[in-house]
Each structure stands twice: as structure tokens, then as C-alpha cells.
Design a binder for these strands. Structure first.
Lengths: 207, 207
DNA sequence: TCTGTAGTCGACCACGTTGGTCTAAAGTTC
DNA sequence: GAACTTTAGACCAACGTGGTCGACTACAGA
């Protein structure tokens, strides 16, 4: 919708955030346009001036989120790094940066991916599959398996490392719950994270 | 409510399952008593004949779930097993059994724990804290730290093992999504799980 | 200064759903 | 068949829904 995109970027962002949050928390069906406009601080009329209806808004959000995650996260990961742990380390940094920049997008995508309460128009479906494929490549393509211990199954080691990284992130997120992400010193957490990575290296790589 | 507890156990179970599912999926506020009765196949009147109102039902479910999880899961874990991985292994088996027996209870508890959209009467609050404390003890009390490698921080190793076990469980759950749990042969999955445990042992214990 | 246009708001609409009540019928037990 | 319990769902007022519309403002060009 050009109407929406010509808007003052600050207001635009506020509307996007409100809408993303509402859909993230409630899914498509139970999300309320009333709550969105209230949260965004705009009149009801405006939302339907920018977007022709609820579904239109929803699809716009999906496209926006897909673009954001691909452009600001997935495509920035160095796919030439063949060391699995180093690659995850780089990915974690990029993801964290993107997440600070636009927290709601990730929440929205999580809910979207595991509910799918509305089927997509083909062009979005296609882009969504592209994202999945790119996410897969990020984890498994061009990894140097020779770095791993010989006495453990490489795929299982992959998974354990992945789960470790995910687990730390989840754990951290919970510990930081409620704190204002923007005014926070992340350095100690990064250090802690690197210690975990060292342990993983020590445990799953040949030394 | 004695009215409810004198009911035919089968109908009782059906009502419990419907209600647990509804609250699990929607939280207290957005859960609908209409959907509950429809799903349970009873008339609207009956729900309010058994429970005096929505809140009463909700608190009954919490108490029921706390009891179930404590009695059928936490208190069955062998707290005398000092080997961390063996303890988790035992816990996983018991949890899986409990989860098959009453899937909704666990979903309900997850939603309940991370939303808390209603504050509890004191006696439930107390029992809830007991559960948390018991869950903590299950993981950290009486573990033999001497089994771990000397060159890694034990607490971090704890976490990585925990995240590995959780990760596998989550991964499995996703792979099995939609399949009827009851008519499924779990043996191969257990074997796979044990392989992961072996790797963890090989990686984080002294050998 | 007038007029047209783009932007903005929120009252309002018809309607569906909410938690909860009540009546009347159907069982059940003597 | 009386006395009692159990059941279903029509019904209630209150509220929330996605979406519309007319009134109003801001500002451009004449």
C-alpha cells in the first residue's frame, strides 16, 4: 500500500510494531484491529485507509517480516565460514543485532510459522519457502565435517551444538525478561556465550 | 466441587481435557466457556452446575494439574541417582509416560507458567512454589560433580546437557506433530535418545 | 480568500460471542 | 407418581468484532 509507505517513518514503525505484536500474541483470528489502533495511537479509520482490510494488513506484515529476516539476518551470515561453531557465532551476533533493531518481527515470525492459521497467496508462499531453504543452508551447507571428533556421529553433534546455542539464547531471553533491551550492556553476556562455545568446541571437535 | 468429582470418570476426563486445552491455547482471559462445553459435548448449564464460574473452573484445573505433575512426574524421579545424565534419562522416561497419559496437562502448565494472567489464591500459590522448588531439586540436588570433566565448568556442562535433552525432546515433538501419540512405537526414538545421551556422556564426563 | 484534496478521527453499524441464568424436561429413586 | 437430581440449551445484557462514514483539519494552488 503506497498510502502507508509514504507515511512518516516513525509513525509507520509504530503501527508495524503494534500490529506485529498483536498478531504475534493472538494469531490471525483472535488479533484485534481495535487493540492495534489503540496501541499505535491512531484512529480506527486510518488503519483501513492504509490497508483495505485485516487480511491485507496481515499479508503486508508477512511480506515485511520475510524481507526483514532475509535481508537483515539470513543473507548477512557468512556462508563461506566452514567452521560450524564459528558460523553459529557469527549468526548469533547478526541475529541479536537484528532482534534489537526490530524485536517484534521475530516474535511474529515464530507465531506465524507454527500456527499458519491463514493460507498464503502464492508469491508469499514462495518467499516463505525461500526463507526456510535459506535457513537450512545456513546451518548445514558447506560445513567442514573434518573438524569434528571421529568417535561421534557428526549430525548428532550438529544438533547438540545447535540446541546448546538455542538453549543459551532462550535462557538469556528469560533472564532478561522485562528489561529494556536497548539500554543494556551485552558484553558480559557475549563473554558468557563465548565460554559456552569454547566448551562446545572442546567437547565436539578434535583437539 | 464434589458435584463434578462424583461424575462418570470418562465424562469427567473429557471435560477436563476440553477445558485444559482451551485455557492452554488461549490463556484465562480469551478462553471461551462456550467452546469448552461444545468440545466436551455437554450443555452450557452443566459447566456452571459443576463449577460456580469460570475462575472457579480455572483454579480447579490448576490444582488438578499441579497434583498430576507432582504425583505422576516429579515425585517419581529417582532423586538418589547421583549421575546427572542417568537422572535426566529416568526423568525423561517418566515424563513421557505422564505426557502420554494426559497430554493437555503439560500444555496447560506451560501456558500457565509463562502467562500468569490471573493471580492465585494463597494455597495454590504455595503449591505452585513447591512444584518449582521440586523441579529445581530434580535438576540440581545431590548430583555427583566428580563425574564431569575437570577442564569444563560444571554448571555450564549441566546447562548444555539440559539444553541437549530439551532440544531433542522439542525436535521430536515437532517431527511427530499431528501423529496419534497413542498408536505409535516409541522404541526407535528412545534408542535415538540414548545415542544422544551417550554422546553427551562421552563429551562432558571424564572417561 | 476560496476550493479541492489528502489525511485523520472516532462514533457508529450490524452482528457474533461473552460469562452466566433459568426453565422445563428427563432420569432416578422411593 | 411424588420427590429429587441431573441435564440441555434458549436466553440475557454486556461487550467486542471488522469495517464504514461523515465531520473536521491542514494545506496546496488559484
Amino acid at each position: 500500500m503506497e498510502k502507508f509507505e509514504n507515511l512518516d517513518p516513525q509513525k509507520q514503525q509504530k503501527i508495524l510494531e503494534s500490529a506485529l505484536m498483536e498478531f504475534a500474541e493472538n494469531g490471525y483470528g483472535k488479533a484485534s484491529t481495535n487493540r492495534i489502533v489503540k496501541q499505535a495511537g491512531i484512529g480506527k479509520g486510518m488503519l483501513f485507509y492504509y490497508f483495505k482490510n485485516k487480511k491485507d494488513l496481515y499479508e503486508y506484515l508477512i511480506e515485511y517480516s520475510l524481507n526483514f529476516i532475509i535481508d537483515e539476518y539470513l543473507s548477512l551470515v557468512d556462508i563461506n565460514e566452514t567452521d560450524f561453531i564459528k558460523r553459529l557465532k557469527g549468526a548469533a551476533q547478526i541475529k541479536m543485532k537484528a532482534q534489537l533493531e526490530n524485536e517484534q518481527v521475530f516474535n511474529f515470525m515464530v507465531t506465524f510459522m507454527l500456527t499458519k492459521d491463514l493460507d498464503l497467496p502464492p508469491h508469499l508462499q514462495k518467499r516463505y519457502e525461500q526463507l526456510q531453504q535459506q535457513g537450512y543452508a545456513l546451518l548445514y551447507e558447506g560445513i567442514d565435517k573434518k573438524l569434528f571428533r571421529k568417535d561421534v556421529d557428526v549430525d548428532k553433534a550438529f544438533n547438540l551444538i545447535r540446541w546448546g546455542v538455542d538453549g543459551y539464547q532462550r535462557d538469556l531471553l528469560q533472564r532478561l525478561q522485562g528489561k529494556k533491551m536497548t539500554e543494556l550492556d551485552f558484553a558480559p553476556y557475549w563473554d558468557e556465550f563465548y565460554e559456552y562455545l569454547d566448551i562446545l568446541k572442546k567437547s565436539f571437535y578434535t583437539n
